[in-house]
Design a protein around this nucleic acid. Structure first.
Length: 542
RNA sequence: GCGCCUGUAGCUCAAUUGGAUAGAGCAUCGGACUUCUAAUCCGAGGGUUGGGGGUUCGAAUCCUCCCAGGCGUACCA
């Protein structure tokens, strides 16, 4: 795996405080015990115990053949440095309290418009493929989850210095699009007054009627080509409204036309003839106890072959990391995809496949069964109309990708004001309005001299939480999980609301006005930055 | 049958990928605005992490066996 930024390179760490602490720990351990380890730094379960904690003593106890408690005690006693205020131990854990001054230093950069931007991605080229729906109809809500996830993840990775390209692969050949063409053709006949019988698999729905009318006006002959182009245009504009953009749109039929699929079979055959077996008129790919058809008896390719070709094309364009966001219906093809690429000599370890689980759509207790062919499905456009882009996107982002989720439309509609996204946005609007008033009264919201006057519990909590933005971003990027950032923003907002409610800012203690305004400005900036990375708006007023 | 995913408070979900006393929101109950946005805040109750066994300093997390649900298991994509 090419997970940059993990491991011993402290300079890549997010915050100065964390970076320094890890260095101090490593050096102290080396001095005391003569051992070099990479201590894990985390947070204690409660703020009162300290800002950071480490399990170094447990890691050392086996090597040193000593009790963790004793090691921890010795480590804590000798832990010094310009940022460490106090180190204590509880049953083998070392808890470290950081000096307030170090946090304040950390805080100073937090009103920068690019706050949180880091470069540990080192320009690594990442190709993120997602949505990749069939061009046979409007995008439905299952794609909305993947769209949100992929788009937000791209933004997050870019903020950490990765060079991300977003790709949409569409299947414009084969039986599905043939059916689309057929559906349009039949609809035209019907519009012309002919009696038609629709075969069971043809597509219905209003969009077919619209396409048929348009095709009639333009006197179109090639319904498949026309239909695919029109539907891609539709999907693109839907995604645009959902604030999701792609850099490249890759056509399956183009790959085939260029001979890329043929070359896969040819190369596999040359490299390892035994994996391709002719049986019952078809060509099978065999590996272990799995067998899957690659070429049907009518000489056409199954889905996997052009997909392998596509992935080879990805590698050949020089990407370091390939991330696929797939629906659970694609799980079965992953082994063939990876094995083929491996045989062809590509570093499959750099291919990360993430499954974005389905959503079950509900209205109250009733489950909505979705079927494209019947035309009964909820589209992203309908979702935007009913729930709104911000609420819908945030709803998806609150869940990690591997878990199937229920999406209750009724709840989302009814309680849209209670959707946590409004909690965060409200905080942002609240601060915006506060800062407006401050400016009107002539107060500066920039860096004041006396930040260290901030000493109330609610203030200190914010001072420590704001720099954690960098850690949340870093974790989000490494784990490929945007929900980590979403949860961070919720936590930060909660702390701010709490602070705001407990202390009066303008009109409060005179010497605290400027520091508190700065603190508020920081939160506003971090929230705005965070929301924009999630593709959610940060309103000034609500 | 086989493969993958899931099971955490009444509900919807977290838990820094093996860390400490498992946390939020919603719902319930009780409180807080003459003052910067009450779409807010504070407090209370709520748990054998589906169940058993194992691995170790330490398990919601890893292994194993059951139970329950979802998806896949096509010469569809």
């Amino acid at each position: 795996m090419t997970l940059k930024g993990s491991g011993a390179m402290f300079q890549e760490r997010s915050t100065q405080v964390r970076c320094k602490l890890e260095k101090i720990l490593k050096e102290t351990i080396k001095d005391l015990f003569g051992v070099e380890i990479i201590p894990e730094v985390g947070h204690p379960p409660s703020d009162e115990l300290g800002d950071y904690s480490t399990n170094a003593a447990f890691l050392l106890s086996e090597k040193l053949k000593k009790k963790p408690e004793d090691i921890a005690l010795k480590l804590a006693k000798n832990l010094q440095g310009d940022i460490v205020q106090l180190a204590t131990t509880i049953s083998g854990f070392v808890n470290i309290k950081i000096k307030k001054g170090a946090w304040i230093e950390e805080l100073k950069g937090s009103i920068h418009p690019d706050y949180g931007k880091m470069d540990w991605g080192e320009g690594e080229k990442v190709l993120l493929e997602f949505v990749s729906a069939n061009p046979t109809g409007p995008l439905h809500v299952a794609s909305a989850r993947a769209a949100t996830f992929g788009d937000s993840l791209s933004r997050i990775l870019e903020s950490q210095g990765f060079n991300v390209s977003r790709e949409y692969y569409f299947n414009d050949s084969g039986s599905q699009v043939e059916l689309l063409g057929k559906s349009i053709e039949l609809k035209i006949k019907e519009l012309n007054g002919e009696r038609v019988d629709y075969p069971p698999n043809t597509y219905r729905g209003d969009y077919i009627t619209e396409l048929a009318k348009k095709a009639m006006n333009k006197k179109i002959k090639d319904y498949v080509d026309f239909g695919v182009k029109e539907i891609l245009k539709m999907q693109k504009s839907t995604l645009d409204r959902f604030r999701v953009n792609f850099d490249e749109w890759i056509s399956e039929s183009e790959l085939k036309k260029n001979g890329m699929a043929d070359k896969i079979i040819k190369d596999l055959h040359e490299l390892k003839p035994s994996v391709l077996v002719k049986k019952e008129g078809a060509l099978w790919f065999t590996a272990g106890d799995r067998e899957r058809v690659f070429i049907r008896s009518d000489n056409s390719y199954t889905y996997v072959v052009p997909d392998i070709a596509y992935h080879r094309y990805k590698f050949n364009r020089g990407y370091d990391v390939l991330i696929d966001l797939l629906g659970p219906d694609h799980i079965d093809h992953i082994p063939e995809l990876k094995e083929s690429l491996e045989l062809l000599g590509y570093p499959v370890g750099n291919l990360e496949v993430k499954i974005i689980q389905w959503i079950t759509l509900k209205r109250g207790k009733e489950t909505i069964k979705m079927s494209k062919r019947s035309g009964e499905f909820i589209t992203i456009d309908e979702l935007i109309k009913e729930v709104g882009v911000d609420a819908a996107r945030f709803f998806f982002l609150l869940r990690k990708s591997s878990v199937p989720m229920d999406f209750d439309l009724e709840l989302a509609k009814e309680q849209s004001e209670r959707n946590p996204v409004y909690y965060i946005q409200y905080g942002h609007a609240r601060i915006s309005s506060l800062l407006d008033l401050a400016k009107y009264k002539g107060y500066s919201v920039n860096l004041p001299e006396n930040l260290d006057l901030l000493s109330k519990e609610e203030e200190l909590k914010l001072i420590r939480k704001i720099p954690e933005f960098k850690e949340a971003l870093e974790d989000s990027a490494k784990m490929r999980e945007p929900h980590i950032l979403a949860y961070y923003l919720l936590d930060l907002s909660k702390l701010y609301h709490n602070f705001y409610q407990s202390h009066r800012i303008i009109g409060g203690e005179e010497e605290l006005i400027l520091p508190r305004l700065f603190l508020s400005n920081s939160v506003r900036n971090v929230v705005a930055r965070g929301l924009s990375l999630l593709g959610v708006s940060a309103p000034e007023r609500m």
